[in-house]
């Protein structure tokens, strides 16, 4: 196995009295794609949202356990969530470019928040990230148009480019293709495979075929518990647990 970038140890998450994630431990190796699958309400999105501490935005949410990013516990009370989110980017379920900003402004927002003001530097970052997100050729002539003027799939790639702009080692994706049509989804999937060269990607998906296509590792959650975690080839062809087999063969879920 490669180096472990992100290591989750015994993570428990509550929404007030309801426990959504129950004692989950997973290691994420560097430069790989890991998928999280499971039926609705199994806590996979909650789990993902803890990894950059954006779960704190939901009133009543509370996480216990350890999430080690290169050995540092990012759940520690002394760690600033702003710092965490600069190392762990996130792409959401629905494309969410800022409606009042142009394509260029959207992509460069992360670097501008870091204090970069130099125009040519910003342009350079924008081109680099839009190229990485396979969007450059489609938008290079209309960078000053509103981000929301793009199609859904383009918007989602814009959001990926935006997340890449601050160059986070880890990229979280929360069902990134569930709001997109199959062709736009396919583009995002291809993009994910490209991103693997530089980033560690953790993706939540409803779509098992997608997990099988793009991921190196897959975790299967049911009702907040980790049922099985392993290499994709094992999970989808030779699952150890009966529940996993039932789920991937469509017997429940």
């Amino acid at each position: 196995m490669n180096n472990i970038v992100l290591s989750v140890k015994d993570l428990n998450v509550w929404y007030n009295d309801f426990q959504a994630v129950k004692g989950i431990s997973i290691d994420y190796p560097e430069k790989s794609i890991s998928a999280i699958i499971g039926p609705s309400g199994c806590g996979k999105s909650t789990f993902l949202r803890c990894l950059n501490r954006i779960h704190e935005e939901v009133p009543g949410a509370r996480a216990e356990g350890e999430i080690l990013l290169k050995g540092r516990n990012i759940l520690g009370s002394k760690i600033d969530p702003v710092q965490v989110r600069r190392s762990i980017g996130m792409v959401f379920q629905k494309p969410n470019p800022f409606p009042s900003m142009s394509i260029l402004e959207n992509v460069t927002l992360g670097v501008r928040l870091l204090g970069v003001r130099d125009k040519s530097k910003l342009m350079q970052v924008a081109e680099q990230c839009l190229r990485k997100a396979a969007l450059w050729d489609e938008v290079k002539d209309k960078l000053s148009q509103l981000g929301t003027s793009l199609s859904g799939g383009q918007q989602q790639r814009l959001c990926i480019a935006r997340a890449l702009a601050i160059d986070p080692p880890v990229l979280l994706m929360d069902e990134p293709t569930s709001a997109l049509d199959p062709i736009a989804s396919l583009k995002i999937e291809n993009l994910m495979s490209d991103l693997k060269k530089d980033y560690t990607v953790i993706v939540v998906t409803h779509n098992m075929q997608q997990a099988a296509r793009v991921a190196d590792y897959t975790s299967f959650f049911v009702l907040g518990e980790l049922i099985e975690h392993g290499a994709c080839s094992d999970i989808f062809t030779n699952p150890k647990e009966q529940k996993t087999e039932d789920y991937i063969t469509g017997k429940f879920g």
Partner: peptide
């Protein structure tokens, strides 16, 4: 909420989030 989370996920502070995702639009 998605807009606010988008700003936060980019590493904005709460104040920056309010500026970017709330006041501007």
């Amino acid at each position: 909420t998605l807009q606010k989370e988008a700003a936060l996920a980019l590493g904005s502070t709460r104040f920056e989030m309010i500026k970017i995702a709330l006041l501007r639009p």
